[in-house]
Design a protein around this nucleic acid. Structure first.
Lengths: 147, 147
DNA sequence: CCATGATAAATTGTATACAATCTATTTTAT
DNA sequence: ATAAAATAGATTGTATACAATTTATCATGG
């Protein structure tokens, strides 16, 4: 590919990911609005429903977000009553994040979301598999095998 | 898949796209910093280098961005001297965006960026092709064939 | 023991994103 | 021709993202 062609928007590697990511996210909004959650709050809760009693740092590694994003977001989730944060007992610098009973109640309400999304994203099962595999490979290329 | 499993972070359709998009974008930052551009400013210029003398609306459709994002962004690009905006002659509501000679000079500097990015993203040509095709299909599912 | 460096989270500052609304202008229906 | 509807951008308000810095706490070497 010539340099000139490489600058065409459609040939950018980044752009389709950027757009699809935004457009898929947008599909979540009406569903998440019913739960009074933003998209980032939702994936944060997904991570916590799966495993809580974790530090902000660990949560950030799983979500690929830093404290600049997570600190205010966790503050809001705590205000809504879905999580609590406690200082680490062994290490006073850490904040340990746990899901409250209210937070687990919300999980029940969220159970139907994935299938709703799947319905409006026209991806076959095998295509999704290919995508997952390639995305995993790209992230590995960035971070190595541990992630 | 059971509902429970469907809520696992790794099974979310959105999440890999969201993360990969962010991580690829992050790879652009050091390269774009040399041009004093943000990522969104960069893709906006890509679109304009390809075709300028366009309205904000058309630009927004190509970039999947609305005026709330584009208005302040175009203002910054104009301040930097890379574009100019003029009221439409036929339709006074429109703003016509054009690239300045300075803006085209910047394009020369940007020519090396795509290959630099390709080097740090571990995607084979055929994998990229598959991804492009699937992403195109997903967007078509959202918007129909015109987009 | 204590100064120094390292680390976790919070804070600051900048730049998106985007829904919702507003304003100016154009189009349309009568 | 003109009031109503539609459209293009701008504005407002909220919520990310993230680099860079700061603060509090912990670990470590002398």
């Amino acid at each position: 590919m010539k340099n000139e062609e490489a600058l065409l928007l459609e040939n950018q590697l980044c752009f389709p990911f950027y757009v699809v990511s935004k457009e898929i996210t947008r599909r979540y909004l009406p569903l998440l609005k019913e739960l009074d959650l933003t998209y980032t709050q939702y994936i944060t809760l997904l991570a916590l429903w799966e495993k809580d009693h974790v530090t902000v740092k660990e949560l950030g590694e799983r979500l690929y977000l830093d404290s600049g994003t997570l600190t205010p977001l966790l503050y809001k989730l705590e205000n809504k009553g879905y999580i609590i944060r406690n200082k680490g007992e062994k290490d006073g610098r850490e904040l340990i994040v746990c899901v409250t009973p209210e937070g687990y109640k919300l999980k029940e309400k969220a159970l139907s979301i994935p299938s709703s999304i799947a319905k409006c994203v026209s991806l076959e099962k095998d295509e999704a598999k290919v995508i997952f595999e390639i995305l995993r490979k790209v992230l590995q290329g960035f971070y190595g095998k541990q992630k």
